Simulated scan of single mutants.
Amino acid sequence: MYLTITPQKLSQNYSQSVSYFVSYLEKENKSRESGQLELFFNQYGENLNPSTVIQEIDANTAKLNKIEPKYYSITINPSRHELKHVGNNIDSLKKYTREVMKEYARTFNREINGKPINITDIKYFAKVEHQRSFKGTDREIKENAPYVKEIKKLENKIRKVSRGEIKGNIRAIEKELHRLKLEAPHKINGEIIRQGMGKEGLQTHIHIIVSRKDASNSYSLSPGSKYRSSEVMMHGKIVKRGFERDQFFEKAEKTFDKLFGYNRNYVESYLARKTFIKQPKQYYAHLNTLSVVEKRIAFQILGQTGISIPHLNITPNQLSFALKHLKKALEVGIRSSSIGY
């Protein structure tokens, strides 16, 4: 499970309204019939129209200035293993989303009218998406890039020869073109993977738009707060503040496991990703402590990221090599908002 929290983008290219983002989230509906549209939902309702989302979020911005985010985007990215476990069932994923948002509310170290924040204080709208496209940060795009570049050059050369602009042997150029297309490392059904091409397999994920202001439009709730859970004296009173992201990510993961009886492997966990970033040698050492069955599953999952893992009990040089490539895989997954296993 991989979750992200990002603030509204504030620049000259984005309006103060949520309408741009809502329009972006409607991209899959453009190719669907009216009876097959994937509409928004929240804690209390289904089949909510985009216009309702825009109206509700845009109206819930009291006392926020132009440089403050009006909303945050949370993305829930289940792994393929997790999606298979729940049968890629949309109702199950919506149920999980609602439980995650309860944890989101509980993660704020804040009170409203003397009571801890709960889900009734949160205004949000969520939407399920079923497709993902390859991005420039994906390993497949990067490794195909030299081949795609040369293929474009040769195709352009063939056009110029055909128009008589330059001299050349079209048959010889086509032979070289065919060789490059065969040697390109990543393909789908024989077609070279390029940026924007849809990914294969289960790609279901959930986008959530959550208002910066609470449901009463009175209090600012920022998951991007620089403060961790703490208390501070303000105007002669002790005030709670902060949002613990680590706690939220861990709770979201445990919620999935409990809700669906999922037996999470170490390499799938938030703790593992965090350990890898901060203490990579400890991460790999922990892999060595797993049972035979758990090791097999762990290395299967890591192998599906395109990484070749050396044998366990490896030399220091092999460990360095493994860590370097594991780090590369995880970083690409993070940038793509999906770990990809």
Rank of each mutant, 00 (worst) to 15 (best):
T6S: 14
Q8D: 10
S11V: 07
V22R: 04
S31E: 14
L37A: 08
L48V: 09
S51C: 10
S51Y: 12
T52K: 03
I67A: 13
E68H: 04
S73E: 06
L83C: 04
I90F: 14
K94D: 04
R106Q: 05
T107R: 01
F108V: 06
G114H: 12
F125Q: 02
V128P: 02
V128C: 08
K135Q: 14
P146R: 02
E150K: 01
I158R: 00
I158F: 01
K160I: 10
S162Y: 09
G164C: 08
N169Q: 12
E176H: 05
H178L: 11
H178K: 11
P185Q: 07
H186C: 00
G198K: 08
A215I: 03
S222D: 07
G224F: 06
I238E: 01
G242Q: 07
F243D: 03
A252R: 01
E253H: 09
E253D: 14
D257S: 10
K258L: 15
N265C: 10
V267G: 09
L271V: 15
R273G: 08
I277S: 14
K278P: 03
P280H: 07
Y283Q: 02
K295G: 08
Q300A: 13
T305F: 04
I307E: 04
I309M: 14
P316A: 12
Q318R: 12
L326G: 06
K327C: 12
L330I: 07
V332N: 08
I334E: 11
